[in-house]
Design a protein around this nucleic acid. Structure first.
Lengths: 225, 225
DNA sequence: TGACTATTCAAGTAATCACTTGAATATATG
DNA sequence: CATATATTCAAGTGATTACTTGAATAGTCA
């Protein structure tokens, strides 16, 4: 029966995508690519891998259809091939978080702020931002912020957070976000802001999910290069 | 910095789930398990694998948190650990379908009915079934049907479809479904029904997706065993 | 043109994977 | 208790994976 072979061929194709997301380094690369288009050596640096190794991983991701690349001058830039990839990654995270005890342990060890307060839902943020009762803080690096961010958000690096504490009024509600649901930067920012007596919470998930939800984003013209 | 290690540990956990869905045979097992709780040798038979091999795959799936098992007498029954797993599998399928040319080619070669007519949306089926203007046909094996099906659906094996042709009125709209969006059975059924001059269409996706969408399901008491 | 840079290719190695085979555990039944 | 059945365990094999190293390709710029 030909359907037998068809089914197996089809599942083999699905498995190709599974293989692409079966390696921690590739998942980390995908998270970076989800923030902004990136060149190979930027990705290698940020992920802490050799350039050759990074290039090989990226080619696997491309062959699995998860990323596309374009060459501009000397550099090759990689980006996600679609928002369905973010949905897949979130589904993966979700399953791991629900069913793997190790994830819970890790999250509870490192993200201690977590249980403190529920994150702010994306929909809530829009309405509250519209009323002007909330300040949105994007704690990602400047390049990622420039490539796209929540409208009206201000970009503050974690290292410079303390310098900006005066800028916040005690009454003001602050919402911080970064790369995704488990990005340490936002957890860290919230905990420091609270330690300074401010009213801070995390946004649900991160920028890629915000964008994938179809919510408005703002980009910033890059003056450098 | 400890966050570096945390991030990598976390991605390693996500990668465990990725590994579980990185093999065609495991994906096939998951599709069967998604229909109904199954014992190891049922799964081995239906997937065409040796029992030992099947057992090993199932243990990998369990360690990745995708399935759970319970022992009853001599047999061990496996089931999905949650509906989030179906969401993950559908996200995987979706990415593969959108970005891998091979999937398109396979689908167009084997599921030629595909382009003919759009499948019926789940929401549409409910309202039309309520009006009694549609007959829903479940073409999966009897055990899978018994474990759960769309309310009011009748179970007809593909092999016996021809015998039941008289039971349908020419005016009646028929909607067929089976295991998932690429399940050949439903495509096959629709094409045969149409060949007989009947008005048949496929349901969007299959039973697991119907259930995961939170729509009502009907189960049938098994008299056997 | 030639020096320089970013990326990819190719070859090699240790680790892991999928599958087989045969034995070991449980659990049920006569 | 002995026997049969369902599942798991353990060891072995060939294939694949992740990563390294060093060379090959393109493209840029003086």
């Amino acid at each position: 029966m030909s359907s037998k072979g068809f089914k197996h061929d089809l599942f083999s194709q699905f498995a190709r995508v599974g293989k692409a997301i079966s390696n921690a380094n590739r998942l980390e690369l995908l998270e970076f690519i989800a923030q902004a288009e990136r060149s190979v050596d930027e990705l290698a640096t940020v992920a802490g891998l050799s350039v050759a190794n990074t290039s090989q991983h990226l080619q696997q991701l491309r062959q699995a259809g998860l990323v596309t690349s374009r060459k501009q001058g000397l550099k090759v830039y990689y980006r996600l091939s679609g928002e369905d990839v973010i949905i897949l990654l979130d589904a993966l995270r979700d399953v791991a978080e629900r069913h793997l005890a190790e994830v819970d342990k890790l999250v509870n060890t490192y993200l201690t702020v977590k249980d403190d307060l529920e994150p702010v839902a994306r929909e809530d943020l829009i309405s509250r931002a519209r009323q002007g009762i909330v300040t949105v803080v994007d704690v990602r690096p400047a390049e990622e912020f420039a490539a796209g961010h929540v409208p009206g958000a201000i970009n503050i690096q974690l290292a410079e957070l303390e310098k900006h504490l005066d800028a916040f009024e005690p009454e003001q509600e602050i919402v911080a976000y970064c790369r995704g649901p488990h990005c340490v930067l936002a957890f860290d920012a919230v905990s420091r802001l609270r330690a300074a007596g401010l009213n801070a919470r995390r946004l649900q998930d991160g920028y890629p999910e915000w964008k994938t939800a179809g919510l408005p984003v703002e980009t910033q013209q890059q003056d450098t290069q």
